[in-house]
Amino acid sequence: MSTEITEQNAENQTWRDLPLDLLISAMSHLEIKDNVRASSVCKSWYEAAVSVRVTEQPPWLIHFPKSRNSYEFYNPSNSEKHPMELPESLSGFKVRYSKDGWLLMSKNISSDFVLFNPFTMDLVVLPYLELWYGYQLVGFSCPPTSSDCVVFTIKDYDPGHVTIRTWSPGEATWTSKQVYESQFLDVKHNYLVFSNGLFYCLNLRNDLAVFDPSLRTWKVLDVTPPTRPDHIDDESWCAGKFMVGYKGEIFVVCTFGNEQPLVFKLDLARGVWEKMENLGGLTMFVSVNSCESRTYVDEGMLRNSVYFPKLCDDETRCVRYSFDERRYDPVEHSVNWGKQSSSEDIWIKAPEYGYEMV
């Protein structure tokens, strides 16, 4: 008799009756959008879903409101500002790329490159680099405190001649790699993301190429460019782009004045850019020289949104686009993002909680 009751109870059990530890284990494998949906099923699912959500601190915006030697950190979650001064040795330097709390900086068309941490004031001076009229695209893989750090520069000197140079901690000179293929880079509007151990490069024509620093190989991928809407002119389509990486995924955000941005996710298996209707719960922070993304940001920040490197006129918030609300905030942001290639404002990974500004 007891056996029959046990079997009947087992048949009547549902997913809602799973032990909390099993629910938590299952929830830990869900993306944020699925986590949020699961949390609405019942009380036990809500508790399990919320318990595994890791709140991520949004990046800060480095804003240059006054001169090249002064700047501000702007925290978009609470609108706090922290004015800072660059060291005298970096006078005249500009930010070229940002990753993991570090900045890659150089003087205009200069061969003097440095890696600078504005929170700790640590400075790494890179070896002299002969660029001949400046770089076209630069970036780095991770902080120079790691032996895995690779600083990457790429330059097209003339048609069919691509030169790639890299540097890693402990090296006294740059390592060169020349590739004789069709010219890839453009005079402007080139984009770079480091993901899955590779540097992904996107040019004005939406061609995509990768450089593998471990194998020192360069390859232009057979990927069909994103489809341009009929009502968007060629100049706007080519200019208003941002490339974003997130946990191995590569995205392109295309903007056109006050219209809704278009977002495409790279599908390497199919060789296409897949159009997305929304960000699936992601929050993206985009700028010309570097982009950041988060899954579950602080209270006060909007998920499924894109934050741009531009403060509103009242300077209390950033311009953003919400895919949930289908609008910009402010609605009339008066900025054509396709014309913002010269913007020096850039997002940087913020320090851990409890950090005090020096």
Rank of each mutant, 00 (worst) to 15 (best):
T217R: 13
H231R: 10
F152D: 03
S168H: 05
S67T: 07
V358K: 11
E7C: 09
E235N: 02
C312F: 07
H82T: 15
P143I: 05
H161W: 10
S305L: 10
L104Q: 09
K349T: 14
W45S: 04
A239R: 07
V288M: 12
L30I: 06
I109N: 08
E332Q: 14
I154K: 04
L279E: 06
K107T: 06
G245D: 08
T217S: 03
K155V: 00
S98G: 04
A48V: 10
W218L: 11
K241P: 00
S51V: 07
V272M: 10
G197Y: 01
F93Y: 12
L282N: 07
K155E: 07
F140K: 01
S141D: 05
L90T: 02
G300W: 13
T255C: 05
P351C: 11
D21I: 11
N278L: 00
T6P: 00
T55S: 14
S146V: 05
E4V: 13
N289G: 15
G170L: 12
F308E: 02
P143S: 08
A350N: 08
T295H: 06
E277I: 00
R53E: 13
L302Y: 08
Q136V: 02
N190Y: 10
D230V: 01
E352Q: 11
S89C: 15
N206P: 01
W337V: 09
G170Q: 11
K247N: 13
D148F: 13
R327P: 00
A209I: 08
V253S: 05
H189T: 09
P87I: 04
L123I: 10
V187L: 14
V252Q: 15
L279H: 10
D230W: 01
C312R: 14
C42I: 11
A269F: 09
E88D: 12
K177L: 15
V179E: 03
W218K: 11
T173Y: 04
F113C: 01
L137E: 07
Y246S: 14
T255R: 04
K219R: 14
T295E: 15
Q178T: 08
T120A: 00
L61G: 10
T175W: 06
S2P: 00
K43E: 10
L20G: 11
L266C: 03
V151H: 03
V297D: 05
C142I: 04
L20I: 14
V50S: 13
W45C: 10
G170C: 10
F113Y: 06
P127Y: 06
D234T: 14
C254T: 02
W102C: 03
V286I: 02
L221I: 03
I154A: 13
L221H: 11
V306L: 05
P76T: 12
T173A: 14
